[in-house]
Simulated scan of single mutants.
Amino acid sequence: MPMPTVLITGANRGIGLEFARQYAADGWEVIATARQASPELDQVAARIEQLDMQNLDAVVALGSRIDRLDLLIANAGTWKPEQAQTAEDGRAWAAMLVTNTVAPYLLAKSVLRQVADAKGKLMALTSGMGSIGESSGGYAPYRSSKAALNMAWHALSVEAQRPGVVTAVLDPGWVKTRMGGANAPTPPEQSVSEMRALIERLGPDDSGGFFKRDGSRHAW
């Protein structure tokens, strides 16, 4: 019986690296993507693919180099620009949408057959800030990119349902990483451990859902 395989994007630091560490420790084969590798990632990943999520040709081509896959964790993302007031901000916002929304969706499509063969799962990391129902305003670029990711993943869930693939978007919470900052209350080890437990128990009836890491649902 081959060991299960997980593909994790943006795995050179933060939440992505912690996912790689934990899955490797549990005997999974970890395929990791990063714009730049790191010594920590070298120690846990069975295979590292250099990948910039802005390069959509490379994103789409990655699936053809993966033979089997049980789980995708689309983790890579950016949070800048924080606000949009200038034309330059607008161009950065458009680039953010590519990284946070378009690229993860295209990557998921590129590996859908392999994940379907394994009856596996397609997971994307989102944010509670992408909830329109719970929005407190501000950070329009980031919020909109995550709301768009949620919609794209929900649409993906309809297509993935027939071959038996479970999909979901997961909110890791406010995590102490470079993106989350030093004031964040949750260490990455805790956030990832709780998300892994959630991923494990998600089934077909949950597919297409928008979940907090404890398994409760966000409002869309």
Results as ranks from 00 to 15, higher is better:
residue 1 M to T: 14
residue 3 M to R: 11
residue 4 P to Y: 07
residue 10 G to C: 00
residue 13 R to E: 07
residue 13 R to K: 14
residue 17 L to A: 08
residue 18 E to A: 00
residue 24 A to L: 01
residue 25 A to I: 04
residue 28 W to K: 06
residue 29 E to R: 14
residue 29 E to N: 09
residue 31 I to E: 02
residue 37 A to H: 10
residue 44 V to L: 07
residue 44 V to G: 07
residue 47 R to H: 12
residue 47 R to V: 03
residue 48 I to N: 00
residue 48 I to D: 00
residue 58 A to K: 04
residue 61 A to V: 04
residue 62 L to C: 02
residue 63 G to R: 04
residue 64 S to D: 15
residue 70 D to R: 11
residue 73 I to R: 02
residue 79 W to Q: 13
residue 80 K to G: 05
residue 83 Q to Y: 13
residue 83 Q to C: 11
residue 86 T to H: 05
residue 86 T to K: 05
residue 99 T to F: 04
residue 100 N to F: 06
residue 102 V to A: 10
residue 103 A to K: 06
residue 107 L to W: 04
residue 109 K to G: 12
residue 112 L to Q: 12
residue 113 R to Q: 15
residue 114 Q to M: 09
residue 115 V to K: 05
residue 116 A to W: 05
residue 121 K to L: 06
residue 122 L to S: 10
residue 122 L to W: 06
residue 122 L to V: 14
residue 123 M to W: 04
residue 125 L to N: 11
residue 125 L to G: 12
residue 127 S to K: 08
residue 130 G to T: 07
residue 133 G to C: 02
residue 135 S to K: 12
residue 136 S to W: 10
residue 138 G to H: 08
residue 140 A to V: 13
residue 141 P to G: 08
residue 148 A to C: 13
residue 148 A to N: 09
residue 149 L to F: 06
residue 152 A to H: 01
residue 153 W to T: 08
residue 154 H to R: 15
residue 154 H to A: 12
residue 154 H to D: 08
residue 156 L to Y: 12
residue 158 V to M: 13
residue 158 V to W: 13
residue 159 E to L: 05
residue 163 P to W: 06
residue 164 G to E: 10
residue 164 G to D: 10
residue 164 G to Q: 09
residue 167 T to G: 08
residue 167 T to V: 14
residue 169 V to N: 09
residue 172 P to Q: 02
residue 173 G to D: 04
residue 173 G to Q: 10
residue 174 W to R: 10
residue 175 V to K: 03
residue 176 K to E: 09
residue 178 R to F: 00
residue 181 G to C: 02
residue 181 G to H: 05
residue 185 P to C: 11
residue 188 P to A: 06
residue 200 E to V: 00
residue 204 P to G: 07
residue 204 P to M: 10
residue 208 G to C: 07
residue 209 G to N: 03
residue 209 G to I: 05
residue 213 R to G: 00
residue 215 G to Q: 04
residue 217 R to M: 14
residue 217 R to S: 10
residue 218 H to V: 03
residue 219 A to H: 02
residue 220 W to Y: 09
